[in-house]
């Protein structure tokens, strides 16, 4: 049995404007090396769940555990094992140039400069973005920014990679390449990948396990085949 790295009970979150979002229903568990697709319509609670996983939101009720710790209290202890690509990519890119941004996490974790160069070089080759290496971040297109953000996450070789609509707005060729890299990455480094998406077409090409979120309730957990058989849930999902 693989190690459980994410465990989420029924959580409730209260936003400052008093809106309440809950993620309840079936238990949400992610094991090492698993590829999970978290699907659901807009406003179903996907992003709320992901933000709880990295400790950016604190549940008003319920429990979140990543690598055995509460991310809200002790994220710094597990930070090196977790990487995330946000929905709003603009806010994620901090470094002035593409190289600087991809190297950001490594440099902050104190990885030696030579190793930083090697690892950044390796990842930009894999993602085929060598031409962007010295470019200034704000001159990149939306798709290029997504690739850079993904590179910045992958370069850390995390044990858990969280992707929030990371493949949205990418061209089919890039999606294909990225999925290939993600699948390969999960196999090579035993990385668990959790991808929240609206795009049902991506799921069979990527996920081992699918979670379906509907209005704050996890209503389905299983393989894509099982989801396809369950017509009602599948319809909700594609709407």
């Amino acid at each position: 049995m693989k190690e459980e790295i994410i465990k989420v009970g029924c959580i409730k979150h209260r936003y400052p404007d008093k809106t309440e979002v809950s993620v309840c229903g079936l238990e949400f568990i992610v094991r090492s090396g698993e590829k999970i697709a978290l699907i659901g319509a807009n406003g179903s609670g996907k992003t709320t769940l992901l933000l709880h996983l990295v400790g950016l939101l604190k549940p008003a009720a319920g429990k979140v555990e990543i690598f055995g710790v509460d991310p809200c209290k002790k994220f710094s202890k597990i930070g090196r094992k977790v990487a995330m690509v946000m929905q709003n990519i603009e806010d994620q890119l901090i470094g002035p140039t593409v190289f600087d941004d991809i190297a950001f996490s490594l440099v902050n974790y104190g990885v030696p400069r030579k190793e930083v160069e090697e690892r950044v070089g390796e990842i930009i080759r894999e993602l085929k973005i060598e031409n962007l290496k010295d470019k200034i971040v704000h001159y990149l297109s939306g798709g290029e920014k997504k690739k850079v953000a993904l590179a910045g996450a992958l370069v850390l070789k995390p044990e858990l990679l969280i992707l929030d609509e990371a493949l949205a707005e990418l061209d089919p060729e890039t999606i294909e390449l990225t999925l290939k890299i993600l699948n390969d990455f999960a196999k090579r480094y035993n990385t668990a990948i959790l991808m929240a998406t609206n795009d049902i077409d991506l799921v069979p090409r990527f996920a081992d396990v699918v979670y379906l979120l509907e209005k704050g309730r996890i209503t389905f957990k299983g393989s894509f085949k099982e989801l396809s058989k369950s017509k009602k849930e599948y319809k909700i999902c594609i709407h």
Binding site: V54, G55, L56, F75, S76, G79, R80, V82, A83, M84, M86, D91, Q92, I94, G95, P96, T97, F99, D100, A103, F104, S105, V107, N108, Y109, G152, L156
Partner: peptide, 22 residues
């Protein structure tokens, strides 16, 4: 508000006070 959000994201990315440009 945006800078506070950015700081949170930077922390997730491992920010410990280092910014550099090669």
């Amino acid at each position: 508000e945006r800078s506070e959000k950015l700081y949170d994201i930077m922390i997730i990315r491992g920010y410990r006070g280092v910014m550099f440009s090669r």
